[in-house]
Lab assay of single mutants.
Amino acid sequence: GKELVLALYDYQEKSPREVTMKKGDILTLLNSTNKDWWKVEVNDRQGFVPAAYVKKL
């Protein structure tokens, strides 16, 4: 099944490779191999968020 993460904080994208999320959002985790930036999918968009801003559910 898909792995989900919870947004712990708001995050505003700073580049086209990133995505914006709001605290409390549930996101689909696509890739967590990089310890600093995790790739997630939110609202049919894929991009990176800081790993410290999310936690695995």
Rank of each mutant, 00 (worst) to 15 (best):
D44R: 09
T33E: 15
T20R: 06
N31R: 07
V5M: 05
E18N: 05
Y9T: 07
D25S: 08
L30G: 01
K35A: 13
V40R: 00
V5D: 01
L30H: 05
W37H: 03
L27K: 00
S32G: 11
V49S: 00
T33G: 11
S32Q: 10
F48I: 07
E18Y: 05
K55D: 08
V42S: 15
L8I: 09
P16D: 13
T28D: 05
G1M: 13
N31W: 07
K56F: 11
G1A: 14
G47A: 04
E18F: 06
L30V: 12
Q46T: 12
Y9P: 00
A51L: 02
K22I: 08
R45N: 06
Y11I: 01
G24N: 06
N34R: 09
V40E: 00
Y11V: 02
K23Q: 09
E3S: 11
K14C: 11
K55F: 10
E3I: 14
T20G: 08
G47F: 08
V49N: 01
A52D: 12
Y53A: 14
K39M: 15
V42D: 14
V19L: 14
I26D: 00
K14W: 04
R45W: 05
V40P: 00
P50I: 01
V5W: 07
T33V: 10
K56R: 14
P50K: 04
S15H: 12
E3K: 09
D10M: 04
D25A: 07
Y11T: 01
S32D: 15
Y53G: 08
L29C: 07
D25E: 12
V49C: 03
W37R: 03
E18I: 04
E18R: 04
M21L: 09
A52Q: 13
K35D: 10
Q12T: 13
V5A: 12
G24Y: 05
V54S: 01
E41Q: 14
R17Y: 14
P50M: 03
A52K: 15
A51Q: 06
K35W: 07
K14S: 10
K55I: 15
Y53T: 09
K22G: 05
F48Y: 15
V54C: 15
R17D: 12
S15D: 11
N43L: 12
V42G: 15
D44E: 13
Y9K: 13
R17E: 14
P50A: 02
N31C: 13
K39L: 15
M21T: 03
L29T: 01
K35Y: 08
Y9M: 12
G1T: 15
G1E: 12
Y11F: 08
N34I: 06
L6E: 11
T33R: 10
P16H: 10
R17M: 13
E3W: 12
T20N: 06
E18V: 05
G24T: 02
W37E: 04
S15W: 06
D44G: 15
A51G: 05
Y11N: 01
G1V: 14
N43T: 10
L27F: 06
K56Q: 10
K22D: 04
A7P: 00
W38G: 00
F48G: 01
K23V: 08
P16W: 09
Y53K: 08
T28E: 13
V54A: 03
L6D: 01
Y53P: 02
K56N: 07
Q46A: 11
E41R: 09
K39R: 11
Q46E: 12
E13I: 06
A51N: 03
T33F: 10
K56G: 06
G1W: 13
K56E: 08
K22M: 09
D36A: 11
R17L: 12
V49M: 01
P16K: 10
V49E: 01
Y53S: 13
L27G: 13
L29Y: 01
Q12K: 14
A52Y: 10
A7K: 01
A52N: 14
V42F: 15
V40S: 00
Y9H: 11
E41H: 06
L8Y: 04
P16I: 10
I26K: 05
K14L: 09
E13D: 05
T33A: 13
F48V: 08
A51D: 02
K39E: 14
R17V: 11
